[in-house]
């Protein structure tokens, strides 16, 4: 397969690629000389003032948490924005208290997120391929039904889901309440959550590519796995990241389904600890928050330019 025919997969993300998220501004007039002095203040300088104020607003809570996580005194009354003392006590306490198995919760969260996100992206991409490449009866109706169902968050049916899984648990205990497997299966309900987004990108891959491959003797599965999927890999990564964020932030269902300490995810586990004693657990919580946030924030920064395209295409973060 010739790679020179690689289509522009970024077509639907044209907004983000044009966005000067990084790199030099695109529409600068070459004759424009940057203003100086009073004119600079009037035209540019005040923008920096606003920008700095915005940054302070965005950063204060972040700095507060960082500071609290390094401040060796556990209670908050001693926490200020600038740490007066510095220690890793709270970080150590994350891994030493068996009543708050932070590492376990972290692993639980990663496990749930990994399985659910993989399944969601995989199944969504499969369905998107069917909707993008095949013409079959009920296709339009199916797409619209999907869009309609997607409007209703799964957790609105929480009461019924709870009943359903407590019944299932009586028959197949491994799938019941208080099991990670049950919770994972529950979240699989969102398996088609990204179909519309991904279909948009599939549509932008020229059909000539498939046809060419089919003439070469490829079956529909080969076209999908060996041609289309590799082309939209960055999109799948962003879709996965958005799904990942919504899975790790899922609190409503987790708080009902995962009640035993050993099966909790970070969201419910950390909430239980913080809610238990807000004055004395803040140091623990802050350290937990920092460690939980770092990978997500890093991924966001790394995938920044794609994310803008992803969210403007309709995904809303939870």
């Amino acid at each position: 397969m010739s790679t020179s025919a690689r289509p522009s997969v970024a077509a639907p993300t044209s907004t983000p690629t044009r966005a000067p998220v990084g790199g030099p501004p695109l529409r600068r007039d070459p004759n424009d000389v940057r203003p100086h002095g009073a004119r600079w203040w009037r035209e540019i300088g005040w923008r920096h003032v606003v920008g700095v104020v915005a940054i302070v607003y965005a950063l204060v809570p972040v700095l507060y948490v960082l500071s609290a996580s390094f401040n060796p005194i556990g209670s908050v009354s001693s926490t200020s924005l600038i740490p007066t003392d510095f220690s890793f006590t709270h970080y150590e306490s994350l891994f030493t208290n068996p009543n708050r198995p932070y590492a376990r919760w972290y692993l639980n969260t990663i496990l749930v997120a990994a399985v659910v996100v993989t399944a969601q992206v995989f199944f969504s991409a499969m369905a998107a391929y069917a909707f993008s490449r095949f013409r079959f009866r009920g296709r339009r109706g199916g797409l619209l039904t999907l869009l309609l169902i997607q409007m209703f968050p799964q957790f609105l049916a929480v009461v019924a889901l709870f009943q359903l899984f407590s019944e299932v648990g009586k028959v197949v205990p491994a799938l019941g309440l208080d099991t990670l497997l049950g919770y994972i299966v529950l979240l699989m309900g969102g398996s088609l959550g990204q179909v519309w987004l991904i279909k948009g990108f599939f549509d932008s891959v020229p059909k000539e590519l498939d046809e060419a491959a089919k003439i070469d003797g490829a079956g529909h599965a080969q076209v999908y796995f060996q041609i289309i999927l590799p082309l939209v890999r960055p999109i799948l990564a962003v879709t996965g990241l958005l799904a990942f964020v919504s899975v790790i932030g899922e609190f409503l269902l987790a708080s009902i389904f995962l009640r035993q300490t050993a099966v909790k995810t970070l969201a419910v586990g950390m909430y239980t600890v913080l809610d238990g004693d807000r004055s004395n657990n803040l140091g623990w919580f802050a350290a937990a928050a920092v460690l939980a946030s770092i990978p997500v924030v890093a991924l966001f920064q790394y995938l920044q330019k794609y994310i803008v395209g992803g969210i403007t295409a309709g995904a809303v973060k939870g």
């Binding site: 940057r34 606003v50 965005a58 932030g249 973060k317």
Partner: peptide, 26 residues
């Protein structure tokens, strides 16, 4: 902040993205 003549736009965006990037429940 969307003024092409501004320096540091990339930095502003990266930092302003933070509240969005930190998991909501935290």
């Amino acid at each position: 902040l969307n003024d092409a003549r501004m320096r540091g736009q990339k930095l502003y965006r990266s930092i302003l993205l933070l509240p969005y990037a930190i998991p909501g429940f935290i």
